[in-house]
Simulated scan of single mutants.
Amino acid sequence: METIEKLKILSEDSQYDLACACGTNKYDHRRRGLDGRWLYPVSLPQGGYSVLLKTLLSNACTNDCKYCPLRSESNVRRCTLRPEEIANIFMGYYRRKKVFGLFLSSAVIGSPDFTMEKINSVARLLRERHEYRGYIHLKIIPGASDAAVEQAFSLATAVSLNIETPGNKHCSTLSPRKNYERDIIRPLKLMGKLTGEGMRFSKKKCTTQFIVGASDETDSEIIRYLFRIYDRLNFNRVYFSAYQKGLGNPDIPGEKRQLSMPDGHFLREHRLYQTDFLLRRYGFREEDFLLDKNGNLRLDKDPKQVWADSHPGFYPVRLNSSARRTLLRVPGIGPETVRRILRARREGRIRSIDALGVRGKRADTIRKYVIFE
């Protein structure tokens, strides 16, 4: 098979990793190039956006993850790119200024460490042979040895390993072959340790991702793990990928769940992203998320609004004197608006929402919860 034909197949198969697919503007969404490769958005340190070339090294998987369309039992067209092929393809795109960096993952070829050696070889070729010093994101394969993980850290700008499910019960439902503690939690803890304060790789970016809805997990289970990932492992981001009906084994819980809520899976993904943002940027804690009797977030209302409706005594907030943390509890006010408020307060008293440059429905919402004392 020709290299470009393999790239088209493997770029197509990389679409099942849906991180960044849920966004609020056109810059947050993945898009496909004319030659079939998937391009993912990335925020640049100096501001603005660029895109990453995203592909699998191989789709010839030996694993049995029941949610995955590339699982070993599936009838798909299999192929593998050699490390040299990926390195050459990427450098061609990079020299033509088509991409900013590389996002490389893979199915499990034989064993986790064999696969990691191929993944790391791509990065090593780029760094040493091509003298490329730009952005490389490498996926850690579940079950990879400590040595393979550390080598990936030494070569990459960012690394990630999908946590997939909140706990062993759900992992065993979706993949009887995987050992949750050994294959997923152990390397995640190692990643957290390697990027700890004062450690060699403290400046490396670490992320992970949940597959949402393939098992019968609740939002409360995901939120508990989400909080611990940030609190104990100091990861930069957690992503969520809504399971899509028809991609996996027909017997998994996610197939039956979507019969009862056909469009709810993407809205649920969106609510989890809102929850993640509230944890990272708004100072929310695990106990601040109010769930229904089944332990799930409400789909009809965002979690910040749910908290506000349940704490009427917290309001109205004094716009001219309240602390940043308090201001962030006001529906309609986010981190950027808080920065405007604090800046305006240094120059004098705020007398109206209009002075902050907020208009329309969001301004109407804020007025319900603040006073200009």
Rank of each mutant, 00 (worst) to 15 (best):
R127F: 11
K189A: 08
V42H: 12
R32T: 07
P335S: 06
R182K: 14
D231K: 11
R285A: 12
K293L: 04
F114E: 15
K8Y: 04
Y315R: 12
Y135P: 01
E255K: 15
D28C: 12
K205V: 14
V338Q: 04
E5S: 08
T115N: 04
L259Q: 15
G248M: 11
P262N: 09
G295E: 02
A148Q: 09
L18W: 06
G47I: 13
D263I: 01
E347R: 15
L328C: 13
I350K: 13
I341E: 11
K97P: 01
T62I: 13
R281K: 11
K97F: 05
I211T: 05
A242P: 14
Y282M: 03
K169S: 14
P166G: 14
Y135H: 06
D302V: 02
S310P: 01
R340I: 09
N88H: 07
R345Y: 02
W307D: 06
Y40V: 10
K26D: 11
L126G: 03
A323C: 10
I366F: 12
Y225V: 02
L161T: 08
K66S: 10
E164Y: 00
G264T: 10
V99C: 11
L155S: 03
L57M: 07
P166M: 10
H311Q: 11
E181C: 00
V159H: 04
C61W: 13
K205E: 15
I4M: 12
S322K: 15
P166C: 11
R37K: 15
Y282G: 00
N120P: 10
A147Q: 06
A344E: 02
V122M: 07
V122E: 08
T165Q: 14
D17P: 00
N320V: 07
L278P: 00
E286N: 10
Y93F: 15
L233C: 06
R224M: 06
D300M: 15
I141E: 03
S215M: 02
H137V: 12
K98Q: 12
R298M: 04
R127T: 07
K368I: 02
D13F: 00
R71V: 05
G264V: 08
I163P: 05
E181R: 06
P331S: 08
G167F: 06
K139I: 00
L52K: 09
S154T: 08
T326R: 08
A308E: 12
Y94D: 05
P69T: 02
L297C: 13
V370W: 09
D251Q: 15
K368H: 08
W307G: 05
R124E: 14
Q258L: 15
R129T: 11
E269R: 07
T157V: 06
C22V: 08
Y315V: 14
L56C: 00
I4K: 14
V159L: 15
Y282P: 00
G254T: 09
L39D: 10
K256Q: 11
D302S: 05
S72Q: 14
L342I: 04
R182P: 07
D219V: 12
R95Y: 10
V51N: 01
V76E: 15
E12R: 14
Q244H: 14
D28A: 12
Y135A: 01
E164P: 00
Q15T: 02
K293P: 00
F235T: 09
R346K: 03
P303E: 12
L70D: 08
I222H: 01
